[in-house]
Design a protein around this nucleic acid. Structure first.
Lengths: 125, 125
DNA sequence: TGATTATATGAATAAATGTTCATATAATAA
DNA sequence: TTATTATATGAACATTTATTCATATAATCA
């Protein structure tokens, strides 16, 4: 005795939409590729090891072994994450002999870090 | 005929440290808990679905079914991610009848979104 | 040249995470 | 009350991801 329902389960079954609001928002959303890149970019900062590396480099340029010491982690773990950071152009590096010195890529990264920190610490006050 | 090596593999084998730099950085690093929270916070923004939800809410308040329509995703997927966003206090909500309207929690979230977007689009110019 | 040192990286493993399905809850309407 | 609608959520599954181990590369030193 149930009503006819889901006879065409391939079509959208949503009924409570505010069509005007949906259209407005759809029209203003950044392009899909931009949103994808944005998520990828934030994801870089969303890892404990990477955020610690970035905060360390926030203070000054460091070589890999310095970072290993500061973080207290395996050298390979640090190198793997440095690779991710390099790939995202969040850090830059220069070679001196067999050592490689890493630093933050630009002031934009600095700002994002301090903005994030400000937000976190604000939530505690 | 290899030299004695790794006889005490339990101790740190790093030798190239700049002790002064390491000390300076260790002294200035934010507390471990802060760094942990910071990574967790950024991780919230580091997902395609969540960043799209946030960008939609950047424009205006929307109910769940509007978001489902804007994103073109299953209702349960959207609800699960709204839960994550709620838990991180990145969005807030109000109930009206059986509907729930979501919006960005505060201007700080707005700023982080637009800062991130600015960074992404800057890299393209 | 051979040995050592600093860093990078591939493969394997374990843990975290996002989506789906099914179902629950809660509000409203009949 | 029963049916319907809007949203939430637990469990399962698949995918991603971070770390470790082992090893490679590349620079320096003896």
């Amino acid at each position: 005795m149930t009503k006819i329902k889901d006879m065409r389960s391939d079509i959208c079954q949503i009924q409570c939409i505010h069509p005007d609001a949906v259209e407005r928002v759809k029209g203003k959303m950044p392009a899909p590729q931009i949103l994808m890149d944005l998520a990828v970019f934030f994801k870089i900062f969303g890892d404990h090891t990477r955020i610690r590396i970035l905060n360390a480099l926030y203070e000054e340029e460091l070589c890999v072994c310095d970072l290993v010491e500061v973080l207290g982690m395996k050298q390979s773990a640090v190198s793997h994450q440095l690779r991710v950071l390099r790939g995202a152009k969040v850090v830059k590096f220069r070679k001196v002999g067999k050592m490689v010195y890493y630093s933050l890529d630009d002031d934009h990264v600095r700002e994002l870090l301090s903005d994030g920190l400000a937000h976190i610490q604000e939530d505690r006050g």
